[in-house]
């Protein structure tokens, strides 16, 4: 489907390009574009971060981005162009980690599609982040389980505690 663009970008070949995302989704039919840009930040959970490394299972990640796009299309129930790109490799503070852009006739569907896509990328796509700290230590981030039994357990925990998600990301 040419209305959905998906990519994994090896950061050693060049950065993510938000302008390319806007160019891709721009269309005379669409008056609203919502974008989300995720950047590497300096601190996490009180520790000073010097950079992160992203590991991806690329073929499955690309399939999932496409599936997420189809779900976003079903959610808005009308015409949509969607761009999803995620970085791979070693990133420094301020580097772009993920770019999502959604364009639709009006703003409400654009915001909804963009939100659905970034949340799904964060919680469902086979991507892993390792943080590197000032003291030379590094650690894989705690993440969301894709295992069905554990996803169910996490959903139950969210219901009981009433927060938006089982953990803080």
């Amino acid at each position: 489907m040419t209305d959905i663009y998906t990519a994994v970008v090896d950061i050693s070949h060049g950065p993510l390009d938000p302008t390319a995302a806007l160019d891709f989704v721009s269309d005379p039919r669409f008056g609203g574009i919502a974008t989300f840009i995720g950047r590497v930040r300096q601190h996490n959970l009180g520790r000073a971060v010097t950079g992160v490394s992203y590991d991806l299972f690329e073929p499955l990640a690309l399939r999932m981005f496409q599936d997420i796009g189809e779900r976003a299309r079903a959610e808005v129930g009308g015409p949509l162009k969607l761009y999803i790109a995620h970085a791979k490799g070693d990133l420094r503070i301020g580097d772009l980690a993920v770019v999502v852009a959604a364009a639709t006739p009006h703003r409400d569907e654009a915001f909804r599609a963009c939100r659905l896509a970034i949340e799904a990328v964060k919680h469902e796509a086979p991507i892993w982040k390792k943080e590197h700290y000032v003291d030379g230590d590094s650690a894989w981030s705690e993440g969301c389980s894709l295992c069905e039994e554990h996803r169910e357990a996490e959903r139950q925990a969210v219901k009981q505690h009433g927060d938006a998600h089982g953990h803080g990301h």
């Binding site: 991806l56 993920v98 970034i118 964060k122 469902e124 991507i127 892993w128 389980s145 894709l146």
Partner: peptide, 10 residues
């Protein structure tokens, strides 16, 4: 086959 630990993209 691949084994996928809990994910943390974005």
């Amino acid at each position: 086959i691949a084994i996928l630990p809990p994910v943390s993209g974005g």
